[in-house]
Write a protein that binds this DNA or RNA. Structure first.
Length: 132
DNA sequence: GGCATGACATTGC
DNA sequence: AGCAATGCCATGC
């Protein structure tokens, strides 16, 4: 039960994230953090989605690496909790503390988390396919 | 440079 | 649905 009106509107800021593609002038962390910062409240992306958006479709693991590199202070400003595995499960389950924090943060913005997992078809941010 | 380490993804059972 | 085997590739030692 996730009434449509409970989900925040999804705006595809294609122009804003189009400049975040990985190239010689932008590093991994910057690209990953830039995309993550723009995931709308109430929506999520998979690590692979973020990788594809920055132009590195096969480097999903590096997305997790970049988020893990966040300093505690940055972690408060960047919505890292909106990035999950492609099946909707929370990747931080090996870390009970942060895992629980991620689930709580998602629920706080209206995303249903059941068994450390969200329903991707429902909450996945529909970024323009042109970027992928 | 070589080798191990992952907040992953896909495929095949 | 779940699980294991593979493929991936930036970093760090």
């Amino acid at each position: 039960m996730a009434p449509a009106d409970q989900v925040s509107p999804r705006w595809p800021p294609v122009h804003a994230i189009a400049a975040l593609r990985l190239d010689g002038t932008i590093g991994w962390r910057q690209a990953v953090w830039g995309v993550t910062a723009q995931i709308p409240r109430g929506s999520v992306l998979s690590y692979g989605d973020v990788a594809a958006i920055i132009g590195a479709a096969r480097a999903a693991r590096q997305v997790g690496w970049a988020l893990a590199a966040l300093s505690p202070a940055d972690a408060d400003d960047l919505p890292w909790w909106r990035v999950l595995r492609t099946d909707g499960s929370i990747a931080l389950q090996g870390d009970p503390v942060r895992g629980a924090r991620q689930a709580a943060a998602l629920r706080a913005e209206g995303v249903a988390v059941i068994d450390m997992r969200v329903d991707m078809p429902t909450v996945r941010w529909r970024v323009g396919a042109s970027l992928l």
